[in-house]
Design a protein around this nucleic acid. Structure first.
Lengths: 133, 133
DNA sequence: ATATAAATGTTGTATATACAACTTAGTGCT
DNA sequence: AGCACTAAGTTGTATATACAACATTTATAT
């Protein structure tokens, strides 16, 4: 055996992502929103009015994942979209307000995680990302 | 804004895990097996005959996830389990053979990923894990 | 020994993700 | 204009995951 099976990079990253998600999710329990949807709202908050496809490009999410999330967010009136086949998406007033509510919670979670990861943690994470690109 | 929204540790780890999974998955296309199931088979290969719950403890997987995967693996005769309420699980002959087939493919993928991550990559990953524990 | 509590397994529900198939729209070529 | 090609959105299917509800088994307390 060249490597120990415990070293599997796939299962380790899956686990890390489950842990991080759990932290964010625990802050979201009172909102009818998932971590992933929060991320999409944040991206929209940054990008303003954009084609749906841009969201996936920005987060490297599959088209279908974006499509379904957009539908869920629209159902809750957090986003508006034009009726084109390739719609343009933007936050609604409610969505903008929700983002303002979520940001402090998100920041708390980031504080929590960064205090766990330590100063170097983010550096390690960035290093991993850079090598994967 | 205390942090840039792009820094979100949750979405970044989700993305890293999607990338790594993609590498493993591309090697598994000819097998009727997922990355996660492969990991479970590998754990069983290490642990021998164990209670189902030990699998989840080892991989930090939810009971329900383990339960469903065990069912899928049993359907393909890769594992055997006792008929108790808390069954003991072990690889079948087919499962053991599959593991032997998968190990070289898994090693190739690990080589690929490690060549991307570089020497320090694994160190970074380990550092992240240690701080999350 | 029996009742209660704790641990574990299963199942239902909802989202996340990948991938394939299909739809629709836009582009370029002739 | 008409046709082929491409890009993007949607939907279906299957697994991954979380969480809740429920079932079963084991442990504990009296």
């Amino acid at each position: 055996m060249k490597y120990d099976l415990q070293l599997c990079i796939g299962s380790r990253l899956r686990r890390l992502s489950r842990i991080a998600d759990g932290h964010f999710r625990s802050k979201l329990s009172e909102f009818n929103i998932t971590e992933n949807q929060m991320t999409i709202l944040f991206v929209l908050s940054k990008m303003g009015k954009v084609e749906q496809g841009k969201i996936g490009q920005s987060l490297i999410l599959e088209r279908s994942t974006v499509s379904r999330n957009i539908k869920l967010l629209e159902k809750q009136n957090y986003i508006k979209r034009t009726s084109d086949y390739r719609p343009e998406i933007e936050l609604s007033k409610e969505g903008t307000e929700l983002v303002q509510t979520l940001i402090p919670l998100w920041e708390e979670t980031m504080d929590e995680l960064i205090s766990k990861l330590g100063e170097d943690g983010l550096t390690h994470l960035t290093a991993l990302e850079n090598s994967f690109n």
